[in-house]
């Protein structure tokens, strides 16, 4: 486990990949960090894929931030697939609960 690791956000045409360690100070801090993903959901004309498999840690403020993305996709009726790694504890435990917010969100193992 690396305490020096930080997060990395890579935008793709059909979604985004988030990896590393993301423990920002507040939900508001995540809003700016994930602004590009919010913009992509706003502009989406088809399904999007959010790859979180490489995200080793996310704090509870980050879970709130993810829920905001999911709710935005729900409001805009954007179908979303979230790629997860079931070896990562928080992903295995928390993301199935998050998926209950939006029936058009599918979790897919890497």
């Amino acid at each position: 486990m690396s305490v020096e690791a930080e997060y990395k956000l890579e935008m793709r045409a059909d979604g985004a990949t988030l990896s590393g360690v993301m423990r920002l100070v507040s939900p508001a801090a995540y809003r700016s960090a994930l602004a590009a993903v919010h913009d992509q959901i706003d502009a989406a004309t088809g399904p999007l894929e959010l790859d979180l498999a490489g995200l080793q840690f996310l704090n509870s403020s980050g879970i709130t931030a993810l829920s905001r993305l999911v709710m935005q996709a729900r409001e805009r009726s954007v179908t979303m697939t979230v790629i997860i790694d079931e070896q990562v504890s928080w992903q295995k435990k928390t993301l199935p609960s998050l998926a209950r917010l939006y029936p058009k969100l599918t979790l897919k193992g890497r």
Partner: peptide, 14 residues
């Protein structure tokens, strides 16, 4: 989640 998603509080409460 539904509650905090609509606010910008310093802590998520989660």
């Amino acid at each position: 989640l539904e509650h905090t998603a609509s606010s910008d509080r310093a802590a998520s409460g989660l």
